[in-house]
Design a protein around this nucleic acid. Sequence first.
DNA 1: ATCCTACGATGGACAGAGTCTAAGTCAAGA
DNA 2: TCTTGACTTAGACTCTGTCCATCGTAGGAT
Lengths: 140, 140
Amino acid sequence: MSDLLERLRGRGWRMTSQRRVVAEVLDGDHVHLTADEVHARAAARLPEISRATVYNTLRELVTLDEVMEVATDGRAKRYDPNAHRPHQHLVCSTCGTIRDVHPTGDPMADLPVEERFGFTVTEVEVTYRGLCPSCAQSVS
Amino acid sequence: MSDLLERLRGRGWRMTSQRRVVAEVLDGDHVHLTADEVHARAAARLPEISRATVYNTLRELVTLDEVMEVATDGRAKRYDPNAHRPHQHLVCSTCGTIRDVHPTGDPMADLPVEERFGFTVTEVEVTYRGLCPSCAQSVS
DNA sequence: ATCCTACGATGGACAGAGTCTAAGTCAAGA
DNA sequence: TCTTGACTTAGACTCTGTCCATCGTAGGAT
Ligand SMILES: [Mn+2]
Ligand SMILES: [Mn+2]
Ligand SMILES: [Zn+2]
Ligand SMILES: [Zn+2]
């Protein structure tokens, strides 16, 4: 991820302090932040950064396949810098915590041709749901 | 689905014309309507039904496991009366069309214990994405 | 080093989806 | 028929995200 700035520069991106800060916030492969969380963390370093810029930058990073957009529920989308190693998500139904998981098997192969209805299927997304250890404890 | 009204009555539901109409709109197992679509169809039969009542009734039907809530992306949630036969969804990335699919294999078995991080995993949701025949045609 | 300008940033209006509230209505049991 | 608490309603409100007009500046040109 530390070469993200380099890759972006290589793609002809104009480098601004705002974009740099958003990229830095997303640095580290295990975060799944909402746009507003990204904005809050970015604003800690660059107080005047606007929400619109955060949204714009995130959208561009998603378009460039540098960040993955994850919509686990009906709430805010989450932004995942771990876009290079394909993975799925495990979500706590109570607190919303997200973990990366790497299931075995290929779900794409599990969809027979006669179940595709003429669609050109390009992507499969698997979401595991359940209770995280601490939420499971408070239920029992 | 025609016994839905009976089941609801059995569960102590007060039967109102609004609830009856919402249930009738959802009758038939192959629809995936948004709340506003449900409202529009319900209003065709009962013009004064309010959006709030449609939302309330849908939420109750989901709680009672009579209807399934499907959140495909950042768009409006869809409500699926086919809640008794487990199935997954195939979604057109362009127009949002949804089809029920029944993949072979058990994705739950594809998540090794060491990838569960102590979670109690209860549910797996698989979403296939791609282009439906007519959207694929307009691209080529 | 300075100038130019097109691209990017800004804040505030706006939009879509959904929730909440206070007041009015009515289903169904006594 | 009466009563009452559950249900419905309109509209205000929240949350997430987009759009727009205007201002600022990164980085190439000179
Ligand atoms: Mn992830
Ligand atoms: Mn379905
Ligand atoms: Zn939890
Ligand atoms: Zn389509």
